Amino acid sequence: MFSRARTAALTTTLATTLAAAIATSLAAGSATAGAPTGPPEAARADVPRTHLTMRFTGCNGCDIRLTQALDGREQVWQSKGRTVRHGTASWSIPTSRTHGLSVTVLAPWDGGAGYVPTVAFRYGGERVGDEVTDAVARTKKRASACWAGTAKDAVTLRITVVRARSTNPPGDPIRTPRAFAAVTQRWEKPMERAWHGISGTQDATYCG
């Protein structure tokens, strides 16, 4: 519903694993995904790094993961999961990984809507720097889950998570995260459909 179909084995594994975790009302930190590939960037002193901090409203206990999947590239990079404690989760990652980054939000109270909730970095009609409230977010029908990234060595993003109403595949009423940047960020394509401001994917979110 929210993303283009992709058939690469790695991203299929990612989507299947995360969707299964939501369907069983995942315990924080329980989701796993395909192992990252490529050189051990963390061990290379010459790689510029960014300390990325996310301050969450409404999602203590949520499992948060970062994914970089870029159009035209087969390789998909994913961070280790972080459990939100005291409203905060943080990572130290190569700065190049912030470009085209998407963020999944797995909440212990998610009823399992058949997709993986993602953070909306920009809603249709909003400009970079615009403040976004839930009253605004719930009216939105288009969203980008792709962050344009940063060249800075440290960045803090404020993320709001609301227990939104939705339905699971059988049609039963559930709660699921409506997650969005409290201040509209620089974003990348695609702008995809969002249901009452809820952004999600059934696959890795490909950016660019």
Rank of each mutant, 00 (worst) to 15 (best):
T176M: 06
R163Q: 13
V162S: 10
A151S: 15
T160W: 04
V161E: 06
V155G: 10
A181V: 02
P177V: 00
T176F: 04
R163K: 15
A164M: 06
D153M: 11
R186G: 15
I174V: 08
R165S: 14
R163S: 01
I159A: 06
R158E: 12
D172N: 14
T156M: 10
T160Y: 09
S166K: 02
V162H: 15
A179I: 08
I174R: 01
K152P: 04
R163H: 02
R175Q: 08
N168F: 07
P173L: 00
S166R: 02
S166V: 00
A154I: 07
D172K: 12
V155E: 12
K152L: 13
N168V: 03
R186I: 10
I174N: 00
T176V: 04
F180I: 03
R178K: 15
D153C: 04
T184W: 13
A151P: 04
P173A: 01
P169W: 00
T160G: 15
V161R: 12
V183T: 14
I159D: 08
T184A: 07
A151L: 09
V162E: 10
I174F: 03
R186F: 13
L157M: 14
F180K: 06
V161T: 04
R175F: 12
I159C: 06
A154P: 07
R175M: 06
T150F: 09
R163G: 01
T156Q: 11
